[in-house]
């Protein structure tokens, strides 16, 4: 009885602590959403912590249509979709080789791919910036003929950064799949390509889906590379373009709040609709490695 009582109070304390922290986490988001529905004039007069006089969608309209934020959503899609597809395609190939063929540099190869992930982008952005200024691209892509300030450059850097983690996860996942399947494919006379395309890729499908969801949100949320590798305001993805709503002297924080909520929306939708894949993506391949 005594222990039961004790665990009940312990439970209550745990709930209180958890409740406090979840409130602390959620509060800024709710506050942003709340302010995003209020006009600027109300909040300058009454302060941000006040009851609403007007409550409407004007800020959203202004952010999306008048400030033209919708165009930057398209930019984000143009970067994130190819980057994710290329990353998954290349990573699945490496994962296939390192998990199904044994050769001397097998482990070393996997380690190199993963180790690249450990370098923080702040450390490597200057060399990459310089590199991008020296890589030639045709005029159709950039009239300055360099990779700097192109969406292609942004896609490539995302592929390069994400491929390590994707390879690591996918190769771990492949190790959980019985080798016998591959062996019977080889017995049936499948070539390396047929083995990859017709056996391994279909098997990887659940892992690719989960990883795809995770990587889409990561690349979509990127701010750093978009600011560092793009100079043209019109090419920016939504995360970097959000600062377009801020001025030098004057910032309408209600409008900015609406913009922030809009930018947040795709991530939230992805999370709530594909929650299972999202969580699976985080834990995938962790059962055996």
């Amino acid at each position: 009885m005594v222990t039961g009582k004790k665990s009940k109070t312990g439970e209550r304390i745990a709930i209180a602590i958890l409740g406090f922290f979840s409130l602390a986490w959620v509060f800024p988001i709710f506050f942003t959403v709340y302010e995003s529905f209020r006009p600027y004039n109300d909040t300058t007069k009454d302060g941000y912590v006040s009851l609403p006089k007007h409550f409407n969608f004007d800020n959203y309209w202004n952010a999306l249509i008048q400030s033209g934020m919708w165009r930057y959503f398209i930019n984000s899609v143009e970067v994130a979709v190819p980057a994710v597809l290329i990353t998954l395609f290349l990573a699945s190939m490496v994962a296939f080789v390192v998990s199904r063929y044994s050769f001397k540099f097998n482990i070393a190869l996997l380690m190199i791919f993963t180790a690249g992930n450990l370098l923080p982008p702040q450390l490597i952005f200057i060399p990459i910036f310089r590199l991008y200024l020296h890589i030639w691209v045709p005029t159709i892509i950039n009239e300055n003929n360099v990779l700097y300030d192109t969406q292609l450059g942004l896609i490539l850097i995302h592929v390069a950064i994400q491929i390590g983690f994707a390879t690591f996860v996918l190769s771990n996942y492949l190790r959980t799949i019985p080798k016998e399947i591959s062996e019977s494919a080889l017995v049936d006379g499948a070539s390396v390509w047929a083995h990859y395309f017709r056996v391994i890729l279909p098997l990887l499908r659940p892992a690719l889906a989960s990883l795809g969801v995770l990587m889409t949100t990561w690349i979509y949320n990127d701010f750093f590379w978009a600011v560092v590798l793009l100079k043209s305001g019109s090419k920016r993805p939504i995360t970097a373009a959000l600062s377009n709503l801020q001025g030098e002297f004057f910032t309408d924080f209600n409008l900015l709040a609406a913009g922030a909520v809009l930018a947040l929306l795709p991530t939230l939708i992805v999370f709530f609709v594909l929650r299972r894949q999202f969580v699976a993506g985080l834990t995938i391949g962790s059962t055996k490695g």
Binding site: F129, L133, N144, V146, Y148, D149, V227, V228, K231, S232, G233, S234, A240, S243, N244, L245, Q246, G247, E248
Partner: peptide, 21 residues
């Protein structure tokens, strides 16, 4: 015209001028 928000423009000016301004 290439319009960039003021703060980003100021913070990136070094790269901007050394890149393809």
């Amino acid at each position: 015209l290439n319009r960039v928000d003021h703060n980003t423009f100021q913070n990136q000016i070094n790269q901007y001028l050394q890149g393809t301004p």
